[in-house]
Amino acid sequence: MTKQEAIYKYALRLGDDALILGHRLSELCSRGPILEEDLALTNISLDLIGRTQALFIYAASIEGKGKTEDDLAYRRSENNYGNHLITEQPNGDFAHTIARQLFISSFEYLFYSELEKSKDETLSAIAKKTNKEIKYHMQHASDWTIRLGDGTNESHKRMQNAINDLWMFTGELFEMDEIDAQLLPEGISVDLIPLKTNWNNYIKTVLTEATLKVPEDGYMQTGSRKGIHTENLGHILSEMQYLQRAYPDAKW
């Protein structure tokens, strides 16, 4: 793979992560546990869709085939999507939404802090902007994890279930594939392996304060970076891409 191709795919799948998680959160509009939280989740969703746009515009420019960010979002099939499996998991109850937010935002904080140092100037600039947003997402998710974990018996149980249910999707976040490896010596991509310890420590701190247990590392799901997804992604895309697919000649 040429360096350009590798950067294209790298930017594209980072965009996919943001797009699919942003989509999931957008599903919650008018479904929050209280009006204030409804607005907070929408803000996070908007941050993510904004990040998607920046990454897709960059990916399209590298690809050089005259595509738009919308072509990339709305005209690819699920096996061409590279988002992590955890981003496409259903919202579930509020505890599942928060557990997903906690795992992803704390990973992204570590990841984008490193990407800020990338030798690729555009990726570095996007990382700097997005990391401010992620810091807030992480605080929001951590606070709610603590409230729910240390709230009522019911909320404690639900939060622990959510943590347990989603744990098997967290291993994938730290996997290096050939694209990560190819761009690493160039100083462009992030080395994911060293992030794991910091991530584990952070999760442990939050879960401990939340009076929750850190799950044992069992089998970890994998495959998304190769385009092998859970069944969820197909449904997300068939809904998201409906108008673009049904009226291919229309401009919106």
């Binding site: 204030e36 939280e37 607005l39 907070a40 803000n43 605080q139 929001h140 606070d143 409230r147």
Partner: peptide
């Protein structure tokens, strides 16, 4: 319900 939530909600709204 608490200080932090109040501050975050104020920020978000």
């Amino acid at each position: 319900s608490d200080n932090k939530m109040a501050l975050q909600n104020a920020r978000d709204i």
